[in-house]
């Protein structure tokens, strides 16, 4: 069974939401990324989202843009991302890893080649922000055959027709974008509205639903955990990881923060 599916069954049985931290491959450094991933798991991460840097990330706010820029200036390529994953898998064969990025670098590598290599490296899902289902008619079925789950986005602007289309192709879980905006947006969560959107999505899909974009502190994470099956934290963690030079201190701080989120989200 795919690690994402398996893990989400476990968290559902435990009656809690899965905690999903996002970090950018190659930031704070190429050598430290796999160690950071282990620290996040140690802190209570159920699934890890590993960002693949792109020069023109239109869905990302300043924090993740800057992280992508730093990663690229360190020479991070798709091969580097997969090497990091291979390194992570040496010591962790159970935590699911979802790759997240933009289509162009993957097209340049050849998307079939990339999908095959990702599976070999130990990836469990792939989320391409700028690849809507309409443009993925060949790629999604190929990914499914390889057991690399195509994770789909649903937005506040998504209407009923589009949700049906997305429901038909989405696997693993639905990634609900909590805000009309970009990653790391500072905005007020209207929990009632969010809850009714999640309930609306649940009427159309039978896979778990995650909430991401703007989940920047423990309080918001705890609220999201009450209505969704996964809670995704990105910019706040990326900022934290970039905040200090000393790797040991940074990783410990990140781990502590994830533990704090994990606690307020109801882990026993």
């Amino acid at each position: 069974m795919n690690r994402i599916t398996k893990r989400l069954q476990e968290t559902r049985s435990a009656g809690r939401a899965a905690l999903v931290p996002y970090l950018m491959a190659g930031d704070p450094g190429i050598a430290s990324t796999a160690r950071a991933m282990h620290a996040l798991v140690e802190g209570g991460a159920d699934l890890i989202e590993l960002g693949m840097p792109f020069s023109d990330p239109i869905a990302d706010g300043p924090v993740i843009q800057a992280a992508a820029g730093r990663a690229l200036s360190r020479g991070v390529s798709l091969d580097t991302v997969l090497d990091i994953l291979v390194e992570f898998r040496i010591h962790d064969s159970s935590t699911p890893v979802l790759l997240m990025g933009y289509l162009n670098p993957i097209e340049q590598m050849g998307w079939r080649r990339f999908v095959d290599a990702s599976v070999d490296a130990g990836a469990d899902g792939l989320l391409l922000v700028d690849l809507p289902p309409e443009e993925a008619e060949e790629m999604y079925p190929y990914m499914q055959n390889c057991d690399l789950l195509p994770i789909s986005l649903v937005a506040p602007t998504t209407d009923e027709n589009r949700l049906r289309l997305i429901a038909g192709v989405a696997r693993g879980f639905i990634y609900y974008i909590a805000v009309k905006g970009i990653t790391g947006a500072a905005h007020d969560f209207d929990m009632n509205q969010l809850q009714s959107r999640i309930e609306w999505i649940r009427r159309h899909v039978d896979i778990p639903i995650g909430i991401g974009f703007g989940v920047r502190n423990a309080d918001i994470a705890a609220q999201c955990a009450r209505v969704a099956d996964l809670v995704i934290v990105g910019s706040a963690l990326v900022e934290l990881l970039a905040s200090q030079k000393d790797e040991t201190v940074v990783l410990q701080t990140a781990q502590n923060w994830i533990s704090e989120l994990s606690l307020v989200m109801g882990r026993e």
Partner: peptide, 21 residues
């Protein structure tokens, strides 16, 4: 109908922009 000129064009945007487009 999807805005392709041969292999080119199309609509490669985050989901938030799909309905507005």
């Amino acid at each position: 109908a999807k805005g392709h000129f041969g292999n080119y064009g199309g609509r490669f945007v985050p989901e938030t922009l799909m309905a507005p487009l």
